[in-house]
Amino acid sequence: MAEMSPLLDVRDLHAWYGESHVLHGMTFSIRKGEVVTLLGRNGVGKTTTMRSIMGIVQKRTGSIRYGQTETIGLPSNNIARLGIGYCPEERGIFASLNVTENLLLPPAVKSSGLSIGEVHTLFPQLKERARSQGTKLSGGEQQMLAIARILRTGAELLLLDEPTEGLAPVIVQHIGAVIRDLKKRGLTILLVEQNLHFAVTVADRHYLVEHGTVVDEIENGQLANNRQRLEAHLGV
């Protein structure tokens, strides 16, 4: 792959929850158009990394560059406006909003977002349930809604935190197909995953995370040769 400056460049990122030091110098980067995963066991700091990139974890040091902008000191709402869409692990569907209101909630940050029609083509279920209360949807539908609402905004980098967790295989396949489709559209995706089988079907590269730091980087094509090394890390 031709060398070019990364879209997201994270260097020596440290983060704290109160007094507890969770990230110990995460360093990794993503080029435009790539799908990259952070792989690791529970509690190694993958979600905290995403929350730090979004500015939700406020006590953080190091450098997080998005394009030409250093975001480490910016408040959360300004970071989102640069063009980063966040899909949290708990999905964050609002109970007091119906499906359409949930879908339209995040304001457009770029003009290049998907139209409602395109979103409904990707996720037909959301059209059928447009008037339902957001949290009345099934887990899979809520996950689709959580992804769909950041596609509308025109965000160019998507942070997806365990989008397949707890979902039926057929829905996991659907989400995999959607991610590959988004990659074709030129979107850049950072994926947190514990499901290695799913990760290999969508990603270009993988970063292995342990104890709040990146311990290894593996190209998706090299995965077969490194299977043992990987499984030792993940404990599968």
Partner: peptide, 19 residues
Amino acid sequence: SYLRAATENPTLVRAFGIN
């Protein structure tokens, strides 16, 4: 809808770019 959502989960609403 911004108000209702921010009442439920202000952190996430802010992470969507709303002040």
